[in-house]
Design a protein around this nucleic acid. Sequence first.
RNA 1: GCAGGGGUGGCGAAGCGGUCAAACGCGUAAGGCUUAGGACCUUAUGACUCAGGUCUUCGUGGGUUCGAAUCCCACCCCCUGCACCA
Length: 907
Amino acid sequence: MAKYIHDKLDEKWRKAYEKSGIYNGKIDTSKKKAFLTVPVMYPDGYLHLGHLYTWTRADIYARFMRMKGYNVLWPQGFHFTGGPLVGFSLRIKNREEAVMKILKMYKVSQEDIDRFAEDPLYLGNYFAKSIRGDFDAAGMSIDWSKNFSLSYTKNYSKFVEWQFRRLRELGLIAQGKHPVIWCPREDTSLGDHDRLEGEGESPVEFTIIKFRLGDLILPAATLRPETLEGATNLWVNSKIPYKKVTFNDGETWIVSDKFVDKSKYQKKINKVEDFDIKSIISKTVENPVNHEAMPILDADFVDDNLNTAIVMSVPMHAPFDFVYWNRLKKSGSKFYREAKKIIDVSGKDSIDIENAASSKTSAEHLERLTKKVYQSEYNSGVFNSNSKLLSGLSVKEGRQRMISELKEIGAYDVFYETSGRVVCRCGAVGVVNIVEDQWFIRYSDEDLKRKSLEAVEHMNIYPDEIRLQLVNAIMNMEDKAATRTGGLGTSLPWDKKWLIEPLSDSTIYMAYYTIADLIEKLDEKYIDDDLFNYLFLNAKPKSKYPEIVNEMKRSFEYWYPVDMRVTAKELIPNHIAFFIMNHVAMFDKNLWPRGLSINGWLVIDKLKMSKSKGNVKGITQTVETFGADATRLIASASNGMDDAEWNIDNVKGFVDRIEFLLDLVEAYNDMSGEDKLVDKYLHSRLMGLLKQVEYDYEHFRYRSAVFNAFFQSTDLLRFYLDFRGSSRSSLKSALEIISKMIHPIFPFVSEEINEKLGNKELLESYKSWPESAHTEQDITLEREFEVLNRTVDDIKNLIKILKLQLKSIKIGVADRAKFEVYNKVVGRLKEDRDLSKIYKEMGRDELVKKLIKNPNKLPDELRDYETELNVLKEAEGYISKLFKVKVQVSESSDDKAIPGKPKIEVE
RNA sequence: GCAGGGGUGGCGAAGCGGUCAAACGCGUAAGGCUUAGGACCUUAUGACUCAGGUCUUCGUGGGUUCGAAUCCCACCCCCUGCACCA
């Protein structure tokens, strides 16, 4: 038994590849090129199998392409821009428990931990190194000579500055105001990852309707200004404190105490005074649109965490309002009057608030109901004649109409509120701040969108469903805020207080890979916009450049555009869309991206479990335990972008089969059998698999690739040996094909097999992928081997049923005449399936009756008499070995012997 | 709300108009092996049968077709993303 000792084997071949320099992309104009990239990652922690999934998929592409004769460049950089490194450093500084536990688990020295807390760059470089080590251990064929970090590498920052000046020249940069969730304590924007609570919450625009009470303004905040004509009153809450705020524009508002703090980010405050809300309860304001009187009433559901804490009451369109309004009716209040319903919803979406909110009045129930009412009215509501202003309009139209009406009469304002509670890591509750001078990239530009869609149309996208998603993402693209105030990054060249944020400084960096190593050798004085214009936009050179610049230009022109970008699906609506759109904006059409391959998430079941046991498996540990090749099996977790559950038990079957192949590689040389039908079958099947596997690799269907290239092919070999196949040349050729088919996925073990077969060259050093096109498959023969397998199953079945002590087996293959009838029926069935007609045409043959008796099981494959007979005859020994009795195969004219289904007699 | 994806056996997951009771893997059961456990091997795993047979299933309800898990329509349910944040 050959033992699969992966660590030795891995090391041997890793070194061989390193020495060969195959991973280093060198210009070779005699070869077609393939430029592969995977997005840069943040070096803010250790790599785990989930990350490795994407990179392994990319690596398989790289290796497959090399075997197909392509010159492959696959560089990899890291991303330092923005918050992640700074954030991680801060968490270490705060000695957050979860973070410290991980660092301890990986045995990071105290000295390093202390430096992490002070120096995010040190931290980034530390983890970048660790991640590189993991990639190498797992056999990634990355060209590290072109590694750099965004935007930490100084020359890359210059490249980004050039990009932004160019975008500005193209009219794709704009400045404007922008609502952002803000930490009032730290005075910075509050990103998702900086939040203790409220991930995914965003600013929501509320309409403020100004109700006037003398000089005072009662600002009711609402998401549904269109219901104003159905309003009966205002609600305030006497249990919460209110203030009288005078703003710089001269208006004085009555609002909750809590609102005052929030409002200063959106309006300039002049003066704040205490206010006794009870002093205005029961007074009346006027509805600014229909001039009806609206009393100010007390209600304890008014929440001062939300907005102004002045609520416009619309009982027939808001369940909470209805419940409280209904109480007035019951208590016989003088303020009660009939509330008007102004929006109708037809059909089954209609909700009767009177019914739904009368019996059950729990807050949860009312909240759910509110959502439903809001949705159904927004989607299919129409204003009825109770609304003078909006009658006949849909709710969507009515809202716009009402807003312009309110603007006209000076009763309109807006206020942004967070869509849910947001809490900063520092503990402060987040508010919405309106940033006045934010810089945007104008992704909404129609011309840019149009050209980007054109780019997408010409891209190879795997799986192709992604194309639709990408088209939608681009069509719906709005302007993107491209700058921020905190974190790491490149300053905006014309407004230095801003840093270019990470999704905006990482859109065309793939072009920089092609010069990343060379530019470091160039004198700084040449590195400016003129250089980049010359290199990337083919502008006339402004200076006389040293030779290295021409080398850079040749490199860019050889490798560009990006042929394949491999990434996980969450980047489609943002990074991938930006990547495409910036290429379209900056570069000529022939430099636009050409390919995209998307994967889902990898869910690692068993590893999580072992983690809780304290038995952590990072990449290094996994590779040490199972070997690089076995670790790479994760790539087979899924065919497309579905999330894949991965179970480390899969590795067991892998080792078993690898050892089988290694054994066979030792043993095949001693075999000396003749070539028989089974050898033809073996070859035919392998050719079929090869064709399938090639398709699988080309379409990034790696689950299927592993299944066919590895599991199916080893099953086939096992069958061949069980069948007593023993041809030395057949086995050698089979092992050769299999080792090549599995090589992109299992590069190291396949090289070992390849070497033992006597091949000296590395499989990626020449065009080694076997051709399958010229070799015809023998489908008829394959079918007859299926007949054999089915017959064996049937025999097993019979023995079980009869419970007999088996003495001998007789197999009767149908005679030549039956095959003729059979093939005639099959041929006829290809024309149409009118069974009664066929029955008439074919005559009252017993066999015809049998064949078409069950419409679900109509035969559809032609069969060959001689092949069937010969295959089964050759299989006599095989069947005899299986059942350990004498087997006799002969022709039979018995009715039970049907083509494809021989007669079986057991005794 | 907008956009995208999905509902198949105990589980994961193939199939995407015709040998589909449904690949492959896991789990489970029985047997072999073993001092025992693990690993490994064999068999079974929708129901009813017992000479290779029959019936019922692929979210729900309709439709197209000789034939549908696969195509069309409607409905129900689930997941993901929605931007200044990686």
